[in-house]
Design a binder for these strands. Structure first.
Lengths: 247, 247
DNA sequence: CGACATCTTGACTACAGTCAATACTAGTGG
DNA sequence: CCACTAGTATTGACTGTAGTCAAGATGTCG
């Protein structure tokens, strides 16, 4: 028992997403319980984690990697409706299927919990529900923020908005300011970007070239972006140069 | 005491949204508590219920009427990011302001709870949090469903999708099937529709005229719509003729 | 090195936006 | 009751942005 408990502490204690995931407020005993119903799983880039028709037997936290939530119309048009990043939660308690296809964009490492026992734990652990509510409200705000991008922004503003999100995330990680040079790796292909932005890949390509030509961004290669001045990028995104950027 | 309790039962017992709102699972004692911290409020059509800059001192349930969640860019472009219908919840526990402007589309009658005591009740009433989580997850699904509309659908499909939502809601209320004639009142102006759909009012107007010309809908007047055949409308919306319509 | 993916660029098209004139509707006051 | 006004909606003509189709460039991996 002692051994098990120690093992858990080592595992969860070292976990990168420990302080942000659903389990962030769990105490040792709750982590013990979680440990009995959890397993880790790796999904290769491009593989489907869950599909709309199929039942799903687990819920999970993304530990590393990126996954996309995709909606598809019969004729093949697709729209990415969300991006799952490390610490994000997969699955909806109380439902046995997902509302959109979840596809691994990069290799994804997940901490999975068997659905049924997780829901039981949820039922007797209010703070878990609280955490889930917090996360869901954040997701909702992000989704609505993105609705403005999809509904009202031009192609150039859309690209700038997407890059602003990546730049913002990178800036937070490296504690940089809006005046500093920020750089980040582009984990999405042109096609994935077009699906996220409601554009075609040609338009994505053209607008990226245009931003590059105008010196808003530098592109040492196709998957790496350097932003000399974040405020300028934010202006291009149609945002106030300080606020309004989620995720 | 007895009197008070009776009065509450009458009030909440007769409440149209009693079985769908946050309070749907509350017992008599909880309703009593809620009653001590609640008040009713009417907002005239066009009035702002809450604005992004201003602090908000309450959370609320919409009892009757419709309100819109609006996002606005500096240059005036606006996007409706959600519609609040009877039983929907207003405000975010734990936050003292809202992320978007909330504007009454029709006259709105709200059941308001003072924020602080409501949050305290929330902290000791797990099933309330559960209900709020359920509602938020539904909102999130609806928002993501709408992202597909905004990002990938044509103007005609957008209008058809909007009407399909209204028709669907009306059909559920009156227990009609997809083959029946369904009608509904249009509570939104052309401008509000354009804000919801990410279009201009001219395009909205043109597409409505086109749907009318093609016999997909009938328009006895500008604010009332008759749908002879819902499946046909759903096809126009680009949806599978049975599923996929939220709210 | 060759083969296949992904990405970029160009030429042309089409859908929705813009600007503007006209029609409709509801409300007010003579 | 009609005339007038203000707000809302429709329709037309034209423009512009992003989509489509297609060729060529770049990148990746066996």
């Amino acid at each position: 028992m002692n051994l098990v408990s120690e093992e858990i502490n080592i595992k969860c204690g070292n976990c990168d997403i420990r302080h942000r995931a659903v389990c962030s407020q769990c105490d040792t005993s709750e982590l013990n319980t979680l440990n009995t119903i959890k397993y880790y799983k790796t999904i290769k880039a491009g593989q489907t984690i869950a599909a709309v028709e199929e039942p799903i037997s687990f819920v999970a936290s993304i530990v590393t990697g990126i996954a996309a939530l995709n909606q598809t119309m019969e004729d093949g048009r697709t729209q990415m409706v969300g991006m799952l990043l490390p610490s994000d939660f997969v699955g909806r308690p109380g439902r046995n299927s997902v509302a959109y296809d979840i596809v691994a964009t990069t290799d994804v490492y997940m901490c999975c919990f068997y659905k049924k026992p997780f829901e039981e734990l949820l039922a007797r652990t209010p703070h878990l529900v609280n955490r889930l509510l917090e996360m869901t409200l954040d997701d909702l705000d992000a989704a609505r923020e993105w609705m403005l991008v999809l509904g009202r922004k031009t192609a150039r503003e859309k690209i700038a908005s997407l890059f602003a999100i990546f730049a913002h995330r990178s800036a937070v990680l490296r504690r940089k300011g809006a005046q500093d040079t920020i750089e980040f790796d582009l984990h999405l292909s042109r096609e994935q970007m077009s699906d996220y932005l409601g554009l075609t890949i040609e338009t994505v390509s053209r607008q990226i070239s245009a931003l590059k030509k105008d010196g808003i961004i530098l592109l040492p290669n196709k998957r790496h972006v350097i932003v000399p001045n974040l405020s300028v990028l934010l202006t291009e995104a149609g945002d106030d140069a300080d606020g309004g950027v989620l995720v």
